[in-house]
Amino acid sequence: MKEVFFFFFGLLSAVFALMAVLNRNLVKGGVSLLASFVSLAGVYFTVGAEFIGIVQVIVYGGAIIVLYLFALLTVDLKSMKAEPLRLSFLFAGGVLSGALFLIILYAGFFLEGSLSSNVSGASDLARPLFYRFLLPFEVVSVLLLVATIGAVAVARREE
């Protein structure tokens, strides 16, 4: 049963990611990316990473994609000229990313073992986070503060 849901959500996230990259309409691309991230949260749930799935929906779906869509509001999409499609870039990108895909698949081909089936909820992750990784956690809070102030300072209209 778990495998069925895993393949369903994995296929869904792959298809929506393909739509997000190839769609020329930015708003449609953003919404496809949102669907892809929510399907990835489904993948996390099926492998037992429960808390990561919840955080994925909240942070990626609720915060980051909405931030992108709000930034799209400030851009005049109608007056934007169409993106030129360069066949050489299409060819180079296809060959390079296909080769990369095959290399990564080959690198993981000899992996053995199966996934453990225990579910890691919030309490399983909280203990190492707040004891062993307390310093990185605090550093990340400073990073988020710096990013907030930096975003406001960069995007402010100068008078």
């Binding site: 778990k2 495998e3 895993f6 393949f7 994995g10 993948v43 492998v47 990564i104 698949l105 993981g108 081909f109 992996l111 073992g113 199966s114 996934l115």
Partner: peptide, 8 residues
């Protein structure tokens, strides 16, 4: 369940 589908 194997790790390979996740890898793909």
């Amino acid at each position: 369940m194997s790790v390979y589908p996740l890898f793909i």
